[in-house]
């Protein structure tokens, strides 16, 4: 398993953080539901390239996401359409629309593949952001593992919110019984449930970086944290506000 080493910091990092990151790196390298291991790692690499993509800078400055033409920085094997989705999630996420997702689906990037892609991009991005916040180098991406995607979908799906189908609020049962606590299926928890492993991936990282789904019920302070819930929510609120996220 890849070891995330924070010894260069000169102070301790809670052990559960590198453990969660290392476990995710293993998952990232393996075939998913809709992408192979090499494709998943290439998506992760593209998420890093987005931050130095000149076309993304131009588009972000444009009044419309479609107001400028150009080509994304893309040194990997992914198609332009896939790279565009990856870069938008990193650099221009609040102008993603239903039309964008539908158009991709009609042109080869299915909604399920998009959801798995979102899961990879945001989870790798959050791990990278942790390193950047602490001023240390990014972890090298893992070596991809061979194998084919499972192309597996959950049994029951609904289209009652957002751009993609999800497991219904009462549908966390059977193989997906671990998806959320019954009665607390917030929209964000259901968001990536079209690909349950994508949801599991970010939730496991969230449990180390922030709080587990169960831990969120504690509004005072988690025993394993040095900041209380108000301090956490001040940080959360400021990050959300700067990103102009209404949710």
């Amino acid at each position: 398993m890849t070891a995330f080493d924070f010894s260069a910091l000169g102070f301790a990092v809670r052990r559960d953080i590198p453990e969660a990151y290392s476990a995710y790196w293993e998952v990232l390298a393996a075939p998913g539901n809709w992408w192979t291991g090499p494709e998943r790692v290439a998506i992760a690499d593209a998420s890093r390239e987005a931050l130095s993509c000149e076309f993304c800078v131009l588009r972000k400055q444009s009044l419309s996401a479609y107001g400028v033409n150009g080509i994304h920085k893309n040194s990997g094997p992914l198609s332009g359409r896939v790279v565009d989705a990856v870069h938008r999630i990193i650099t221009d996420q609040n102008r993603i629309t239903q039309t964008f997702v539908d158009d991709n689906a009609a042109n080869g990037l299915s909604k399920a593949a998009y959801v798995e892609l979102v899961g990879i991009v945001v989870t790798v991005f959050s791990i990278d952001e942790f390193n950047r916040a602490l001023g240390i180098s990014l972890q090298p991406l893992p070596e991809p593992k061979p194998g084919e995607p499972s192309f597996e979908l959950p049994d029951a799906l609904v289209e009652d919110m957002g751009f993609v189908p999800t497991i219904p609020a009462h549908g966390a049962t059977g193989k997906n019984a671990d998806s959320w606590v019954p009665g607390s299926a917030a929209n964000v928890v259901r968001a990536l449930s079209l690909v349950p492993d994508a949801a599991r991936g970010w939730q496991q990282i969230a449990g180390a970086q922030y709080l587990s789904l169960q831990g969120m019920q504690n509004l005072v302070q988690d025993d394993n944290r040095s900041i209380n819930r108000m301090q956490m929510e001040l940080i959360a609120g400021r990050v959300s506000a700067v990103n102009e996220c209404f949710y």
Binding site: R88, I89, I90, Q93, N94, I96, T97, Q98, V101, V115, V118, V121, V122, T123, F125, S126, I127, E129, F130, A133, M161, G162, F163, V164, V188, A191, L192, W202, I205, A206, Q209, Y210, I227, M232, I235, A236, V239, S240, N243, C245, F246, Y247
Partner: peptide, 16 residues
């Protein structure tokens, strides 16, 4: 926590 919410805002917006 900050890294976590850099992720969460992108989940919310990319899924609408």
């Amino acid at each position: 926590v900050a890294a976590n919410f850099q992720r969460m805002v992108r989940i919310a917006d990319s899924i609408g």
